[in-house]
Amino acid sequence: MELIGTELQAAMPPEVFAGRRHADLQQLNSADCDRLSRLDRPLIRCDGSAHHTSIGWDEVHALTADAFRRADPARRASNSSSSSSNGAPFLVQLLLRALGSNNRADCSDLSHAPSTIGLTREFGSGTPMVNLESLQQADGVVLVGSNAPANHPRLMNELIRLRERGGLVVVINPVLAAGLLTFGSPAFPIRSMLAGGSEIALLLGLQKALLERGAIG
Rank of each mutant, 00 (worst) to 15 (best):
Ser84His: 10
Ala201Thr: 01
Ser111Leu: 11
Gly167Ala: 05
Pro153Leu: 01
Phe90Ile: 03
Met1Asn: 12
Ala62Leu: 01
His112Arg: 14
Glu7Leu: 11
Arg213Leu: 06
Phe90Cys: 15
Arg20Phe: 07
Thr182Lys: 09
Glu2Met: 02
Gly19Pro: 06
Arg69Thr: 11
Leu94Asp: 06
Leu202Ala: 07
Pro149Tyr: 02
Asn102Ile: 03
Ala65Cys: 06
Leu25Asp: 10
Gln137Gly: 14
Val130Trp: 00
Gly124Cys: 12
Ala74Ser: 09
Ala209Ser: 11
Ala65Arg: 10
Leu143Phe: 03
Arg121Tyr: 15
Asp40Ala: 07
His152Asn: 03
His61Lys: 04
Arg21Gly: 07
Met129Gln: 01
Gly118Asn: 02
Leu36Val: 02
Gly145Ile: 05
Thr6Ala: 14
Thr127Ile: 13
Ser82Ile: 14
Thr182Ala: 15
Val92Arg: 01
Pro73Tyr: 09
Asp139Val: 02
Ile190Glu: 10
Arg213Trp: 05
Glu7Phe: 06
Leu211Arg: 05
Leu39Ala: 04
Asp139His: 10
Phe183Asp: 01
Cys46Tyr: 12
Gly56Ser: 03
Gly19Ala: 05
Gly140Glu: 10
Ala105Phe: 08
Thr127Ala: 14
Met156Gln: 06
Glu158Leu: 08
Asn157Phe: 15
Leu176Tyr: 04
Gln93Asp: 11
Gly166Thr: 08
Cys46Gly: 12
Ser108Met: 14
Met129Gly: 07
Arg191Val: 14
Pro174Val: 03
Asp24Val: 03
Ser30Ile: 00
Thr120Lys: 09
Leu8Arg: 03
Thr116Arg: 07
Cys107Val: 00
Leu211Ile: 14
